[in-house]
Simulated scan of single mutants.
Amino acid sequence: MAEDLKTKLENYRTAPFDARFPNQNQTRNCWSNYLDFHRCQKVLSAKGADTAPCEWYGRVYKSLCPTSWIQKWDEQREEGIFPGKI
Protein backbone atom coordinates (compact mmCIF):
# COMPACT_ATOMS: atom_id res chain seq x y z
CA MET A 1 0.00 0.00 0.00
CA ALA A 2 2.88 2.38 0.72
CA GLU A 3 4.18 1.83 -2.80
CA ASP A 4 0.71 2.55 -4.20
CA LEU A 5 0.61 5.85 -2.28
CA LYS A 6 4.09 6.77 -3.50
CA THR A 7 3.05 6.01 -7.08
CA LYS A 8 -0.05 8.18 -6.74
CA LEU A 9 1.96 11.07 -5.31
CA GLU A 10 4.60 10.82 -8.04
CA ASN A 11 1.96 10.80 -10.79
CA TYR A 12 -0.05 13.61 -9.18
CA ARG A 13 -0.94 16.39 -11.62
CA THR A 14 -3.96 18.26 -10.23
CA ALA A 15 -6.80 17.70 -7.80
CA PRO A 16 -8.90 14.68 -8.78
CA PHE A 17 -12.69 14.76 -8.92
CA ASP A 18 -14.28 14.61 -5.48
CA ALA A 19 -17.94 13.57 -5.45
CA ARG A 20 -18.55 15.63 -2.31
CA PHE A 21 -17.96 18.77 -4.41
CA PRO A 22 -19.62 18.21 -7.80
CA ASN A 23 -20.03 21.88 -8.76
CA GLN A 24 -17.57 24.15 -10.53
CA ASN A 25 -17.08 26.27 -7.42
CA GLN A 26 -14.29 24.48 -5.56
CA THR A 27 -14.05 26.84 -2.57
CA ARG A 28 -15.39 24.26 -0.10
CA ASN A 29 -13.11 21.61 -1.57
CA CYS A 30 -10.14 23.93 -1.02
CA TRP A 31 -11.21 24.64 2.58
CA SER A 32 -11.86 20.97 3.42
CA ASN A 33 -8.51 19.80 2.08
CA TYR A 34 -6.68 22.60 3.92
CA LEU A 35 -8.31 21.51 7.18
CA ASP A 36 -7.74 17.80 6.45
CA PHE A 37 -4.05 18.41 5.78
CA HIS A 38 -3.47 20.21 9.07
CA ARG A 39 -5.62 17.76 11.03
CA CYS A 40 -3.68 14.86 9.55
CA GLN A 41 -0.36 16.55 10.40
CA LYS A 42 -1.52 17.21 13.96
CA VAL A 43 -2.79 13.68 14.62
CA LEU A 44 0.12 11.80 13.08
CA SER A 45 2.69 14.07 14.70
CA ALA A 46 1.08 13.53 18.10
CA LYS A 47 1.34 9.77 17.58
CA GLY A 48 4.94 10.04 16.41
CA ALA A 49 3.99 8.52 13.05
CA ASP A 50 5.21 9.46 9.59
CA THR A 51 3.21 12.37 8.16
CA ALA A 52 3.84 11.45 4.51
CA PRO A 53 0.20 10.35 3.91
CA CYS A 54 -0.85 13.93 4.70
CA GLU A 55 0.97 15.19 1.61
CA TRP A 56 -2.00 14.15 -0.54
CA TYR A 57 -4.21 16.74 1.15
CA GLY A 58 -1.42 19.29 0.93
CA ARG A 59 -1.02 18.88 -2.79
CA VAL A 60 -4.77 19.05 -3.38
CA TYR A 61 -5.34 22.23 -1.38
CA LYS A 62 -2.27 23.88 -2.90
CA SER A 63 -3.62 23.23 -6.39
CA LEU A 64 -7.15 24.43 -5.55
CA CYS A 65 -6.65 27.35 -3.16
CA PRO A 66 -5.44 30.80 -4.13
CA THR A 67 -2.05 31.55 -2.58
CA SER A 68 -3.40 34.62 -0.80
CA TRP A 69 -5.95 32.48 1.06
CA ILE A 70 -3.29 30.00 2.14
CA GLN A 71 -1.05 32.80 3.40
CA LYS A 72 -3.93 34.38 5.31
CA TRP A 73 -4.96 31.09 6.89
CA ASP A 74 -1.37 30.26 7.85
CA GLU A 75 -1.03 33.67 9.52
CA GLN A 76 -4.31 33.15 11.36
CA ARG A 77 -3.18 29.74 12.61
CA GLU A 78 0.08 31.25 13.90
CA GLU A 79 -1.82 34.02 15.68
CA GLY A 80 -4.34 31.56 17.14
CA ILE A 81 -7.35 33.16 15.48
CA PHE A 82 -7.98 30.61 12.73
CA PRO A 83 -11.75 29.95 12.41
CA GLY A 84 -11.49 26.27 11.42
CA LYS A 85 -11.35 23.28 13.76
CA ILE A 86 -7.98 21.61 13.40
Rank of each mutant, 00 (worst) to 15 (best):
D4I: 11
P22M: 04
T27P: 02
L44E: 09
E55F: 02
Q24R: 09
F82S: 15
D50M: 04
D36I: 00
E79S: 11
D18L: 02
W73K: 01
R28W: 10
W69S: 07
K85Y: 09
R28I: 03
H38N: 15
F21T: 05
R39V: 00
Q24Y: 08
P83C: 08
I86V: 06
Y12K: 04
Q24C: 10
D18E: 13
K8S: 10
T7Y: 08
R39N: 08
A19Y: 08
T7V: 11
Q41S: 02
K6M: 12
D50G: 06
L44R: 15
Y61W: 07
Q26R: 13
Q24S: 09
N11Q: 14
T7D: 09
R28M: 13
N11E: 11
F21W: 11
T27D: 14
S32T: 13
S32W: 12
A15D: 07
C65D: 01
E79N: 13
A49V: 04
N29Q: 13
I86L: 14
K62V: 01
L9H: 09
C30S: 02
C40H: 04
S45K: 12
A49N: 09
G48P: 07
L9F: 07
R39P: 00
K62F: 02
R13F: 04
D4Y: 07
N33H: 15
S63R: 12
L35N: 10
Q76H: 03
Q76S: 08
D74K: 11
Y57E: 03
D50H: 06
N33L: 09
H38T: 00
G58D: 06
C30K: 00
P16H: 06
P53I: 00
P53K: 01
A46S: 15
I81A: 08
I81H: 08
R77S: 02
E10S: 14
E75R: 11
R59C: 02
D50Y: 03
W73I: 00
P22V: 07
T14A: 08
I86W: 07
A15L: 02
Q76F: 05
K8V: 08
R20V: 07
P16S: 01
T7R: 14
E75F: 04
P66N: 12
H38K: 03
F17L: 09
K42R: 13
A46W: 01
F21A: 04
K6N: 12
A52R: 14
D74G: 02
